[in-house]
Write a protein that binds this DNA or RNA. Sequence first.
DNA 1: GCCCCCTTGTGAACGGTGTTCACGCAGTCT
DNA 2: AGACTGCGTGAACACCGTTCACAAGGGGGC
Lengths: 234, 234
Amino acid sequence: MVGPQGPLTPQRIVATSRALLVEGGPPAVVVREVARRLGVTAPALYRHVAGRDDLLTLLITACHDELTEACEAALQAAPPDPELRLRAATWAFRSWALAHRTEFGLLYGTPIVGYSAPAQGPTLRSGRRFGQLFGGLFVDLQRAGRLRSPGGAALGAALSADLRAAAERLGLPLRPGEVHTFVVGYHRMLGIVSVEVSGHLSWALADSEPFVRGQLEELLDDLLLPRPASAPGV
Amino acid sequence: MVGPQGPLTPQRIVATSRALLVEGGPPAVVVREVARRLGVTAPALYRHVAGRDDLLTLLITACHDELTEACEAALQAAPPDPELRLRAATWAFRSWALAHRTEFGLLYGTPIVGYSAPAQGPTLRSGRRFGQLFGGLFVDLQRAGRLRSPGGAALGAALSADLRAAAERLGLPLRPGEVHTFVVGYHRMLGIVSVEVSGHLSWALADSEPFVRGQLEELLDDLLLPRPASAPGV
DNA sequence: GCCCCCTTGTGAACGGTGTTCACGCAGTCT
DNA sequence: AGACTGCGTGAACACCGTTCACAAGGGGGC
C-alpha cells in the first residue's frame, strides 16, 4: 500500500522530518513517527533512507540550501551596489535564522554529537556553497574599492599564511588582509545571529531586535570603506 | 549493595554523567549507563535524581559553576587594574570553553529541545550569577572612567528603555549607554567563542587561535577608553 | 528485646526507540 | 509463463526512560 499522499519521495520525507523538527527539536525527528505520518511503517522508510543519521543529513542539506537560496533571492532583488548587496544578504541571513530558529540551530548550533556528519558529505558541501556566496560579495566589494583591510603585517605571519591558504582553497582572488575582513564578517555575523537565535541574550534584553540591528550595522561599518567622494553614491 | 566507590553522592552522579557527556555528547548521558558505571541499577538512581532532565540540570549547573569559578580564579590572580581584570576574565572564559567544548556546548549552544529548563530553576540562577560577575567588571571600568559608551540618543528610545530596565533588574549602577557596552561585550565575546568552539570556522582557518585572539583584542579595544594620560599607567 | 518505619536498593514490567530480517505482493522484462 | 526487482509488511532484537511491588538493612520508641 502507499501513503495517503502518494509515493515516498525524498521531498515528502524531508518535509515530514522537518515538521517534526520544528515541533519538537532534533529529538522529535524519529524514524517511526516520520513513517507514521507518511502512512507507512518504519521499515519501509529504510528503503529510501539509510537510517536516522541519513535523515538528519538530508534535513541539514535541505535547510542549508533553503538558507542559501533565501540569500540568493535577496541578492537578485538587490541593486548592483556591492555594499547594498552585502547588506541585503546579511539581513536575509538573519531573517531566515529568526524565522526558522530550530533549523538554524541544526545548521549552526552545537554540532549533534553522536551524529557523525559524513566526511566529504553533503553537509560540508552546502556549507561551502554558502561560504562562497558570501565570498563573492567580498570579492565584489574589493573590486569596488570598498573593502577595508588591515595591513598584512598587522596580522602576523601564521595568520597571514592561513588566510592565504584559505583564499587559495576557496578560489577567492583576495590578499590575506582582505580575506581577513571576509572571515571577520562571516564570523561576527554568525556570532551575532547565533547568540540572538539561541536566546542567550534574553536575560539582558526583552527585545533583541534593535540591539542586533545596531550590532550588524556596526559590523558593516567595520568591514566597509566609506563610499569614495569621486564616484557619486546612490 | 553499594557501588564500588561508595554511596551515591550527587558529586559521583554528576561526575559520571559528565564523563559520559564528554565521551559521546548529550545523547550519551543515559540513565542506565550512569547507573551501570556507579555499580548500581537504574531505578536506584531515581532515589537521588528525578529523571534524565534532572540529571542534565545538575550537569548544566555544575558546569556553569565551574566556568564561573574559573573566571573568578583568574580575577583573583589578576592585578587591580580593571582593564587587565576584564582581559583576564575574558581569556579565562575562552580557555575554559576550548578546554571543555562539549560542556560549553551544553551551556551556551543550541538549547536542548525536549529538555525543559525548570523555570526559576538553577539553570537560570547560575546563568545570572555568571552575568553578574561580568557586570561587576564593567561597573569597575565605569568607575575608573575606562568604559566607552555611546550617547543615549544614538541608541534609540526602545533600546534605551530596555537597557535601563536591564540595569535595574541586574542591579547595575550604569546608564543605558554603559549597559549597552556591557551587553555588547558579553554578546560579542559569546559569539566569538561560540563560533570558535563549534568549529564553524574551520572551513576558513586551519588554526583559529591567532584569529580569535585578534578578535577578542579588537573587542576589548571597542569597549574600553584609552588609559587617561593624567593617571600614570601600570 | 522487639517492632515499626524509613531509606535505599532490586527485578520485572510497560511503552517507546533504531534497526534488521524473512516474507509477500505487484509490476516488468524475457 | 516464469523469473526478477522494487517496495511494503509484521515480527523480532536490543536498548532507552520510567514506574512499580518488594526486600534488606539501620535507627528510634516501647
